Computed example of a mutant assay.
Amino acid sequence: MSRQAVRRMPSALPWVAGVSAAVAIISVVCTVVLIRGDNLRETTIVQAIGGDPGRAVPAMIRNGCGGCHEIPGVPGAHGTVGPSLQGVVDRGYIGVSRATPDAMMRWISRARDVDPKTAMPNTNLSPQEARDITAYLYART
C-alpha cells in the first residue's frame, strides 16, 4: 500500500470506544435493575412475614443452625447433618407441611412438635427470631 492509501483508512478506535461504552452502560443499567428488583422482593417479603433478615444471621449463629445446615451468607454455616438451606423456599414441603412462611416459622422453632420423628431439634426460638430467620431464608437464600 502506498502512504497515501494508509492515511485515508478510517480508524476503528472511535467505533471500538463507542461499543465499549455502550456495553459498560448496559452492564450498569442491568445491575441497577437487578439490585432494585432484589430490594423490592426483600422489602415485600419482610413486610409480609414481619421479620428482619438483618437480625437473622446473629440469631442463627447464636442458636447453632450452621452446625447442621449449610446456610448461604451465614459465617461458618457449613453443616452437613441437615439439608442445605440454599433455595429452601422453593421446596414444596418444610418438614411434613406445605411450604409457607407460617410452616417455616413453626418448623424452625418447634420441629419435633410438627414431626416427632425428625432429627431437627426444637430450638425454642422466640416468635420474633423465627420471623427474622424465616424472612432471611425467604429473601436471601
Rank of each mutant, 00 (worst) to 15 (best):
M1F: 02
S2F: 00
S2Y: 00
S2P: 00
Q4Y: 07
R8E: 14
R8A: 13
P10G: 13
A12N: 10
A12P: 01
A12G: 04
P14G: 10
W15K: 10
W15F: 15
V16N: 04
A17R: 14
A17I: 14
A17M: 15
A17G: 07
V19M: 13
V19L: 15
S20C: 13
A21C: 11
A21F: 09
V23S: 08
I26G: 08
I26T: 14
S27A: 15
V28Q: 07
V29L: 14
C30T: 11
T31D: 03
V32P: 00
V32G: 02
V33T: 06
V33E: 04
I35V: 15
I35L: 10
I35C: 04
G37I: 00
D38P: 00
N39L: 11
L40A: 15
R41A: 05
R41C: 02
R41Y: 07
E42P: 02
E42Y: 01
I45Q: 03
I45C: 03
V46G: 03
V46S: 13
V46C: 13
A48P: 02
G50N: 09
G50C: 09
G50P: 09
G50R: 10
G54F: 13
G54H: 14
R55H: 08
A56G: 05
V57A: 11
P58I: 03
P58E: 03
P58H: 04
M60S: 05
M60F: 03
R62H: 07
R62S: 13
R62M: 05
N63A: 09
G66H: 08
G66V: 06
G67H: 01
G67I: 00
C68L: 10
C68G: 12
C68E: 09
H69M: 08
H69Q: 08
E70I: 08
I71A: 02
I71P: 01
G73L: 12
V74W: 06
P75W: 01
P75A: 13
G76D: 11
G76E: 07
A77T: 12
A77N: 10
G79V: 11
V81L: 15
V81D: 09
V81Y: 08
P83D: 09
S84M: 12
S84C: 11
L85T: 03
G87Y: 08
G87F: 06
G87M: 06
V89A: 14
V89C: 08
V89I: 09
D90W: 07
R91Q: 14
I94Y: 10
I94W: 12
G95D: 06
S97M: 14
S97K: 13
T100N: 12
P101T: 09
D102C: 01
A103D: 12
M104Q: 02
M104K: 00
M104P: 02
M104T: 12
M104Y: 12
M105S: 03
M105R: 14
W107Y: 15
W107P: 00
W107V: 04
I108W: 08
I108E: 07
A111V: 10
A111L: 11
D115L: 02
P116W: 01
T118P: 05
A119I: 02
P121S: 03
N122W: 06
N124P: 02
N124H: 15
Q128T: 02
A130R: 00
R131D: 07
D132S: 03
D132V: 08
I133E: 07
I133M: 06
I133H: 05
A135Q: 01
Y136A: 02
Y136G: 03
Y136M: 01
L137G: 01
T141K: 04
T141S: 10
